[in-house]
Amino acid sequence: MLTLDDVSVAFNAGTANEIRALQQVSLSVDDGEFVTVIGANGAGKSSLFNVIAGTAPVDSGRIVLDHADITWWPEYRRSQMIGRVFQDPAMGTCPGLTIRENLSLAAIHGRGAGLRQGVKKDQDAWFVERLAHEHLGLEYRLDSDVGMLSGGQRQAITLVMATLIKPRLLLLDEHTAALDPHAAGQIISLTRELAESHELTVIMITHSMQQACMLGDRIIMMHQGRIEFDIAGEERRKLRPADLVERFHALEDDAEIGERDRPGPARI
């Protein structure tokens, strides 16, 4: 279970350019829950991810994952519990290493690298089985350099790497945004399959309202560093993309009016 307590992050604090990326965000994600996070650019989605993953420090607040206070843990240490897939397909894998070597690195997860052989023969069956689930034929290409693969294939590998050893939490940062529609669809169905079969706890950022409605059992909408909507249960099941788009625009319009102190009809 992941709990965020009053987490705040500000950039350029105390100057005219102060940006409050997160304003006292509190959030609790139960084990096995699939949460999608939506919001406009600059709403604080990425900041939320960064403080959970440990790539950015918090100004105040507490982050607890499975009863461990990870607020000040370094990024690599959190990664032993948290799996991540990035927006950029190049970020999650090593292009110069083979698929087998990349997966072998992921298999070290949480143990710390020692002097044992990095590539172990007896792991091959495991890798093949996991890759076969993707239906991309990558299980026949364990010796290919990852650099030779397409973005979609790399994201698939990153997904498998992030979940090879079941993470306590899986963070997906717009992991289909850089892919063509076909590849994006493949990755989304793979994501759903993995999340269901391994009962993963997932937080996924997306810009696609369809994806947000298709996947997961809870939707969080962020705006100006705050969580504006948190839709779960019955309400979430009945939600359609159109409703979501409507709420999204309502939020944006309110903000513009608020910012400019200009009452009247919403601008188009």
């Binding site: 690599y76 240490r77 999650g92």
Partner: peptide
């Protein structure tokens, strides 16, 4: 990627 696999 190395950090993401939990290695310092």
């Amino acid at each position: 990627m190395v950090r993401a696999t939990g290695i310092n």
